[in-house]
Design a protein around this nucleic acid. Structure first.
Lengths: 243, 243
DNA sequence: ATAAGTTAATTTGTCATACAAATATAAAAT
DNA sequence: ATTTTATATTTGTATGACAAATTAACTTAT
């Protein structure tokens, strides 16, 4: 005689608490840098034990929604989520999605080409002097031949991110950050050889000049060249690997 | 005399454990549907207490990386992360990003227009008979005038998602899922009036026909019409609100 | 009086233990 | 043979205690 009425709370208490707190953050009841009640207070309010509250808080911490500090002025605080704070979070999600769903390199690079072209067009229109200055600094750093492969990759990411930011469209920047990351595993393979480094860097230099001169067509053409180049290198690497 | 050598473990134990497990999942050591050791076993292996292990597991659960079940055959299992599983996760991140960084509706809708146009072009090229059948089913459901506003919104999301999937580019689908969600708060305002519902539905019908006939230009034109229409409604609503 | 050091208070982090709830398996009763 | 019952396993929750970090107030020495 299973006559349960109403939607029974099937999920665990820690999840329910986490969801309620998240809702408060999303609604704006809890704003950025606000301090949450102490764990003990939360436990009393929600009528659950402290470990349960802690599990809930860790759920939020995993999503980067809150941070915690010890001590008298410590506690849990609502995070301000900018592009940078969310990027590492999105990176793991994207990486997992790509690996678990057998997303092909072609799918990634064609999507990225389409979107980054849009970025380039906007950047050519709206780039400020500060944008150009930032891009140039990244470029100079990249030319340094003493940096490690890892540093070169990171610099590559930063350069493309800077262009995305130069579009002055925050939504677009946000999306591009994930797409740039998605293609990184491929770029990583390349950064070890110096000759390829030089090619990439020179392409970046030409892109910089094109954006500086607000030449949309040229900028997009070089981008396409670079993405095709990466794809080609990847195919060669795979063939070598199969032998 | 602060001579600590080496990178001290600054983060909490539960975070360290969570990171290690996540790394194992990302690397492929733990594959989808694999079962993790029991909490007690994990506690022994990592030499920490069970509550600490639990906090770590809840961190992973918050990211949708694992699921848990009770009982003899229960435990924690690695999730298979498809587009759907990740989308709700990304949705909260996107929603927060939009609200916390004052992303304008214009930034969102222009980005979405650009990306969804690309979707439409690909969908016109690659749509299969199954794709069309799915789209038609969503359309039929949407025409039903008895569904609640919430259901109408959800149906709207599903329709646009189905088009994204019809592009047969998984990376693009993944990105589009977040973008569609980001514009939902605006659409939600609209679904309450029946006249607007009819306009939206008729636009969807025309989009369906265009994709069915592989008419790229027409499909994209109607999309632009719809997004502009939403933006216009939003502006009107804001003006009314200010009065 | 000022500066340094010390103590106390607050809050998160961790641990140990116990029990409740769910669930599958095997045994027992109908 | 089918249903019921018992039982073992595993996550979920509660309680209590202590450790570690950090700030504020206080004390002491110069």
């Amino acid at each position: 005689m299973n006559l349960e009425i109403g939607p029974i709370n099937k999920s665990s208490l820690s999840k329910q608490v986490a969801d309620q707190l998240q809702e408060a953050i999303l609604e704006g009841t809890l704003k950025a840098d606000d301090r949450l009640p102490t764990e003990e207070e939360l436990a009393q309010r929600f009528q659950v034990s402290r470990p349960t509250i802690r599990e809930a808080l860790k759920r939020l911490a995993a999503k980067n929604l809150i941070r915690s500090r010890r001590g008298p002025t410590g506690g849990s605080f609502v995070n301000h989520l900018g592009t940078n704070e969310l990027s590492d979070h999105l990176t793991t999600a994207t990486t997992l999605f790509v690996s678990m769903n057998d997303v092909s390199l072609d799918e990634i690079s064609s999507t990225r080409l389409e979107m980054e072209s849009y970025c380039f067009r906007l950047a050519c229109q709206h780039r400020t002097e500060e944008d150009l200055k930032r891009l140039e600094q990244h470029l100079i750093y990249q030319k340094n031949k003493n940096i490690s492969p890892e540093e070169f990759c990171a610099a590559d990411v930063r350069f493309h991110r800077a262009i995305a930011d130069s579009s002055h469209n925050k939504m677009l920047s946000f999306i591009m950050y994930t797409l740039i990351e998605a293609l990184q595993p491929v770029s990583n393979m390349i950064a070890y050889r110096f000759r390829e480094r030089e090619i990439i860097t020179s392409q970046h230099e030409r892109i910089f000049n094109a954006i500086s001169n607000q030449d949309r067509k040229l900028a997009c053409a070089i981008l396409e060249e670079q993405i095709n180049y990466l794809q080609q290198l990847h195919e060669e690497a795979q063939e070598n690997h199969q032998q």
